[in-house]
Design a protein around this nucleic acid. Structure first.
Lengths: 360, 360
DNA sequence: CAATAGATTGCATTCGAATGCAATAGTGCT
DNA sequence: AGCACTATTGCATTCGAATGCAATCTATTG
């Protein structure tokens, strides 16, 4: 062991701290053995000094730390991961599409994870087909958990579950399979929003959905329809997009291109499409928002509150949701057999300037 | 070796493919030894089957692959990293601030890296002080390279360089230390932009900078000043922000709050601040853009082209820059001793609707 | 001062895959 | 069939840190 490097002729005696200063070969990392040799202790002692809560005397700790500093030693996370079976990596799956919701979630998650000593292994996923590759990669890297804010096919989810890798779904879930979920339920706020719009005299509602396969979109759409039904109203027009700005713009065209009875209020299932709608209305169709058409949506991303938009929207408490997601991961990483948990958060209706009384 | 699990009473003979179907204990990963046992071959054979270009017969490959599939075996990237000294991880440093330039770069980099079989270890860094931690983490994980689109202190850079970890600076560099750099040089487009503004009759220019310590901001500001000097003009007002929307909005207030001689054209060193300026002008100060004040900037992010903004800006070829960054990393990971390289790209002037003739 | 519990330390092994080297199998040719 | 090569395969070791267990040291108590 530790017989790499031509040994610098060291006396057999346990020369504490002798001139063992290994002439660090350029580019070669110092290992725990190097530190041990320099400090005149065993490798296990070095290992223990870097493990919080291990039984080490102060004298030992000082000696080792001094040597470690001299050699710029840092424990090798790869080797540690191999033996401990914990990589300290968490795979985070987001969509690569231009939907600014994702960066907000991603950066927040990164922050929260790093607070727990976990690093983010980032994957962008834009379709179910891609999930196979991603899951395989995550598995290869022995990630301690997976947080998915994007697609994750059921088959791949089950592969992870079977392998006992904690998975947390961020604002999405399978309706028929229990999983760990962090979810924002905007039901109450949807009612509040629709109430308000109805008070404003709106009767013709349009909806811009996401892809049919998307659960968040379906749920939000369902809530809108139910809230309308409470007022004995129903959707007059629908269109769908893919959560991007551009698709929101086209959707508005579709909704408004009817001869008569175009909606006076349009609800989009996310902010990004609402921004597209609003711009299309104002700058292409020359409609006033909110005078000619009211627009409201979901998410509460920063951009949608820029003063060009000020969209009335139902905000997700992203910060608390990210904390919860990380908490679910860490607790499951420690005790793998915990049952699934669903943490639900309320939304918050943000009053912007994108809704107003219905035109006559 | 491989003597975990109660051995299922297996005959000593080299039973090729006998009933060695290890009853995979739930949660335990299959290792190359498990596959080897089931296929009746050696562990090294399994390893070779998963190494592209290794010398393996077709018969062997079939046997191993069949067994691997049965056990859902995937090589363990951690163990592989330990022995090969390559982790296939690349640390990417971006700013966590709400500047939408970063997500664009990040997602694009992720895509390009994954094309090369590399994974992104994400770090958000918002100040020089944070870089120490980040570099230490990156080092612990034995990353194959670091791409920094955010802060990275010189001391930390040198630590990485000394350890022969390839580092690529994305659109930033130290003026006095050679490094690997991918950079967009907008010099020609700045001249073009200023020419155009001068033709439009502008004489009073304002500039919104970033933090003084930031190189990109300094360079862009210098180019603007030089281009103005070519027309015997100089800046009439300056303000600075931190690249965010909000700071752009405040900056505009500062620039315009003079009694007389407020600038008729404002250049921002990034799009995000330009969006803030524009919104502040239009929605708070009730100025028309571009009639009362022209606004132009740098970066060319998607959001700045939404029809509420359509900012005239100098776009960076982010796609090609990301490709270049990845290329620099991979080539250095293979041959560590290559000299530093700086790849410079031209910008492109995007004509938006945010500039017009100077008001009288 | 001896005895004993408790705190430290070192030894030896382990994690899972890659690889140099030696052994073996397979091929082509005369 | 015999020989010379080349293509495959297996053996044994390695990467760097963590950890159970045994050995040693320290402190406390009678």
């Amino acid at each position: 062991m530790a017989s790499n490097q031509q040994k610098p002729k060291q006396p057999d005696g346990v020369g504490i701290d002798a001139e063992n200063v290994v002439p660090l070969i350029k580019g070669r990392r110092a290992t725990s053995y190097d530190v041990a040799r320099l400090a005149g202790v065993s490798q296990s002692a070095v290992s223990r000094c870097f493990k919080p809560g291990a039984s080490v005397s102060q004298k030992m700790r000082d000696k080792v730390m001094k040597a470690a500093e001299q050699l710029e030693y840092q424990p090798n996370a790869i080797a540690r991961g191999l033996i401990t079976q914990r990589s300290n990596l968490v795979a985070v799956l987001v969509s690569g599409k231009l939907n600014l919701y994702y960066p907000e979630v991603l950066f927040r998650l990164t922050e929260e994870l790093s607070r727990e000593g976990l690093r983010v292994l980032l994957f962008t996923v834009d379709s179910e087909e891609e999930t196979e590759d991603v899951v395989e990669q995550a598995w290869q890297f022995q990630v301690d958990g997976v947080i998915s804010a994007s697609h994750l096919s059921r088959a791949q989810y089950e592969k992870l579950a079977k392998r006992e890798i904690p998975v947390v779904f961020f604002n999405r879930y399978f309706s028929d399979t229990p999983t760990n979920v962090v979810y924002c339920d905007p039901d109450a706020q949807v009612r509040e929003l629709i109430d308000r719009l109805v008070e404003f005299g709106h009767k013709r509602f349009g909806l811009v959905r996401g892809p049919e396969a998307n659960m968040v979109s379906r749920e939000r759409a369902r809530m809108v329809e139910e809230a309308l039904a409470d007022h004995s109203l129903s959707l007059k027009a629908q269109a769908s997009g893919d959560f991007t700005y551009e698709s929101g713009a086209s959707a508005l065209q579709a909704l408004m291109s009817v001869k008569v009875g175009a909606p006076s209020a349009v609800i989009c299932v996310n902010d990004m499409m609402a921004m597209g709608c609003m711009d299309e209305a104002r700058h292409v169709m020359e409609l006033d928002v909110p005078e000619d058409v009211s627009i409201a949506s979901f998410d509460g991303i920063g951009t949608a509150q820029f003063s060009s938009y000020e969209i009335t929207t139902i905000r997700q408490p992203i910060g608390r949701m990210c904390e919860a997601a990380v908490d679910l991961i860490t607790s499951r990483a420690e005790k793998p057999n915990q049952s699934n948990e669903k943490r639900v958060f309320e939304g918050a209706l943000i009053a912007g300037s994108s809704i107003a009384s219905a035109p006559d």
